[in-house]
């Protein structure tokens, strides 16, 4: 019999290895001066001034990402419901979503600055990324009921709205939360990219200005914070997803 190590132990070991390697590369300096040891970055973050700067940026980025997430989900849900109730629209909406997704966000951002303004661009870029992922998740989820389940609802004379409420939505939830696990980090990525092009504050702004002024520790601190925020969003979504799977399958 083979003993299997528990998953949390594997995960912890993996993370520890990653941190150690990053630290070693920084200590030995083999990647140059732009790769500091992680301990220096953490030490830098412990300073009150740096902490306040990063925290202010984090709040701004998290707010933009949050708005982007909500906007993206709402628009994706509306589009998916339209596609569900008016099947003629389905191919067109699918194509529109693909085209929007094919346009690089980085190309859209300068355009958005001139249209929706510097303040809102991060949220809108985030919403665009989220919208596509969630549209795919919603449409796939709503179409996920088995043929027999659909037949059962038909023969009992269920109205389309009742079928949506009592069959399609519950069936879709695991898929929708799967989508959310992808969309949440996408929102943070989108918000950060949106900030590069002249937003007044945020982690993206911090990253760009630290890069231009060669403030290596600040750059790493901002990047690390963005990564942790993204990871936290992902983990929350995964937790929700496993809850949905347990309840709805």
């Amino acid at each position: 019999m083979r003993l299997r190590s528990p998953r949390w132990l594997n995960n912890t070991i993996g993370v520890l290895i990653l941190i150690t390697v990053a630290e070693l590369i920084g200590r030995t300096g083999i990647a140059g001066r732009s790769w500091p040891p992680l301990t220096d970055v953490v030490g830098y973050l412990a300073e009150p001034v740096a902490q306040a700067t990063v925290l202010r940026a984090l709040t701004a980025t998290a707010a933009s990402a949050g708005w982007g997430l909500v906007l993206g989900i709402v628009f994706a849900a509306i589009a998916a419901l339209l596609a569900n109730f008016i099947p003629v629209l389905r191919p067109g909406l699918d194509r529109l979503a693909s085209v929007l997704n094919a346009v690089p966000l980085i190309a859209l951002a300068p355009l958005l600055i001139t249209t929706v303004g510097r303040e809102s661009t991060p949220a809108v870029v985030a919403a665009l990324g989220v919208g596509f992922v969630m549209f795919v998740a919603f449409t796939a989820g709503l179409a996920g009921a088995s043929a027999t389940h659909q037949d059962v609802f038909s023969v009992f004379g269920s109205a389309r709205s009742t079928t949506l409420l009592r069959l399609q939505i519950p069936v879709s939830l695991p898929t929708v939360f799967d989508g959310l696990a992808l969309a949440a980090p996408t929102a943070i990525l989108g918000a950060t990219i949106g900030e590069w092009f002249g937003a007044p504050r945020g982690l993206g702004v911090l990253i760009v200005s630290a890069m231009q002024n060669y403030q290596v520790l600040l750059l790493w601190a901002a990047a690390l914070t963005a990564a942790l925020l993204s990871l936290a969003a992902y983990l929350i979504a995964v937790r929700l997803q496993s809850g949905a799977v347990r309840r709805f399958t």
């Binding site: 088995s146 027999t148 709805f248």
Partner: peptide
């Protein structure tokens, strides 16, 4: 033949 009960 497939019972098609709602699993939730």
């Amino acid at each position: 033949q497939e019972h098609a009960l709602l699993p939730w």
